[in-house]
Write a protein that binds this DNA or RNA. Structure first.
Lengths: 339, 339
DNA sequence: TCGACGTCTGGGAGCGCTCCCAGAACCCGC
DNA sequence: GCGGGTTCTGGGAGCGCTCCCAGACGTCGA
């Protein structure tokens, strides 16, 4: 079985040039959307491209040009990946949708393969033009380190140790605030919370929202138990809360997945939901609608999250100015039966 | 603000050659693990690479060589993505782990951006050396089409319209069979199933396992209701089953997510679980352990799935022979409280 | 009439590798 | 000794683009 040097199929830029009756420089200009090309040439090139089914060679562009035509999606998961999974698919879909049509490749990186130094070396080594960093752990130094190397990055989820790194996040604060206001409007008077870990911005922001909501009405903010975004820890937290305040009438749980555990404990103790205790979760994950009873929760648009993240990075790469340093995406309350 | 043509940082292959005291041809040979390099040269090159922190330029390798040094992960989701999400993160992690250390980029593609023709054109256009196709919908023509173009691919999940396309799948049949045998060993005598849709291999294989398990013991296989991998359809299916056989004493549900719906219905009807009706799910997703009661289910190793998928493709790309045409990964029963 | 400037164009060097080729060095058996 | 192999090596063409340069053509104000 002999195998010759297999050449890639498809037309080259030169052929497009020939068909269009221009030089390859001009074709290149058209492809890259540069100015100083006559309308006539531009049309001719587009026709030729369509006719030949030409698609530019990514490797050649990257090699010859000064940009990599690729961005990295860095999943920096430091142990706690529980929160990631519901996110993951949705965010990815969003990122992908936003990238559609542009000639930008999406490279995936996780913490695993090249750890620390190597990963940074790779990212700053000119292999990518920028990076989307989805960092779950708030104090992860990666976002900041990357940002300081000058590589354009956008972080998904507010980084705690962020400095001035651009980020996109759900408006966790207002989501939580809205949830608490809703509970108060229902007439609840003893509203507890199961908060996330203190080292994650997502946890802290939701906690702040809860605090503010109560403070607005002069209500006490003692009933807090921190937990770690797992159902079991949610259950433990609920038990702790009931020990401290058996007469509580509402719980704001900082994640649906913890709410499941809380629900279980409440039901086991004979509390009726929402009659005795109203429960509101956060995320509106699949879990929420399948819970018993279906969970009232704060919804965030995960796909929009991915889109926005990507849009922000691409805009920066395109040299756009006056971009917002960071962005918060709206959240909304989804009413089901648990509150 | 003037900006010169920014050259990529880092050493070139020539510098490695100079430091190692060999030609760049030899360095290239070492990098690509070719034979016909003396041990002495090899060592020298490795030392030089380490010293300079050299990392080969992906674009240049791809442009000069006859391979793309990249593989695609194609997520072909035709509508039904419910099943995907739990999978997704895990599979990705596995794929990534398996790729670690090799100089292969992972490109992500979803059905969205280039549909059909364009997608195929891109994949077969020499941009990637092979593809991992995670196809949820069993009769998706994509795997077969790609395979017929000669692009090396491996499909995740047995394709129904597969022809002889290599695939990796969980051993759904034996997983289901094991679940049914377990139920029988528990003394259950009227075992129903909520099956998946008929156009998905994963549904059909689990159904076959259930059938076989019952047939082994001469038990009837009438109590089947098909459903579509959503909690609500699971609930409807359960209602239908109870209508047909109010005295059933076990249900094998082809997915945890449907089992949640079934659980809800059973409990609402006053059946005690597992005393009156034993329930076994499939997937061992997060949902299983948080269900009330915690779900006995068939576990599949999602990360291993991703690893195996990737391993199989890389092996083929490396020219390995006598590769198994397809592979089934073991499943195992996880006992919790529902059976 | 002239230059200055803005618009449009083609030519061609060169990005950093791989892979072909030609050849050196060494082994073997006859 | 010689021809034939196998092992190892360096030289250099060329992958398909981008981007710099030089220049051709306007159009405008002095």
């Amino acid at each position: 079985m002999t195998e010759g040097r297999s050449r890639r199929p498809g037309p080259r830029i030169e052929e497009v040039a020939r068909v269009a009756g221009v030089s390859k420089s001009t074709v290149s200009r058209v492809i890259n959307g540069e100015k100083y090309v006559s309308e006539r040439s531009r049309q001719a090139v587009h026709r030729a491209i369509a006719m030949l089914g030409y698609s530019p060679n990514h490797a050649a562009r990257t090699l010859a040009g000064s940009k990599a035509n690729a961005i990295a999606l860095v999943i920096s998961e430091q142990g706690s990946r529980v929160l990631a999974d519901p996110f993951f698919a949705g965010v990815l879909r969003g990122v992908h949708a936003e990238l559609a049509g542009r000639h930008v490749q999406l490279l995936l990186m996780m913490n695993q393969p090249l750890d620390g130094e190597d990963q940074i070396a790779y990212l700053t080594g000119g292999h990518v033009d920028g990076a989307l960093v989805v960092s779950l752990h708030g104090e992860d130094p990666l976002p900041r380190t990357l940002h300081e190397t000058g590589l354009p990055i956008v972080v998904g989820g507010r980084p705690l140790a962020g400095g001035s790194v651009p980020f996109v996040d759900a408006d966790n604060f207002n989501g939580a605030l809205g949830a608490v206001r809703f509970l108060i409007s229902l007439g609840r008077e003893k509203i507890a919370t199961i908060a996330g870990p203190v080292d994650m911005a997502v946890g802290m922001d939701r906690l702040s929202g809860w605090r503010c909501g109560l403070a607005e009405h002069g209500m006490g903010v003692e009933l807090v138990v921190h937990s770690d975004f797992t159902p079991d820890s949610g259950a433990l937290a609920m038990e702790e809360l009931l020990r401290r305040a058996p007469d509580l009438d509402a719980v704001f749980v900082a994640a649906d997945i913890m709410a499941l555990g809380a629900l279980r404990v409440l039901q086991a103790r004979g509390y009726r939901i929402p009659d005795d205790v109203a429960v509101v979760g956060f995320d509106d994950s699949v879990l929420a609608s399948t819970a018993v009873p279906p969970l009232t929760t704060v919804r965030q648009d995960v796909e929009g999250f991915g889109r926005t993240l990507t849009w922000r990075l691409l805009a920066e790469l395109a040299g756009e100015e006056k971009l917002p340093q960071s962005m918060l995406l709206p959240t909304s309350l989804v009413r089901r039966s648990s509150a």
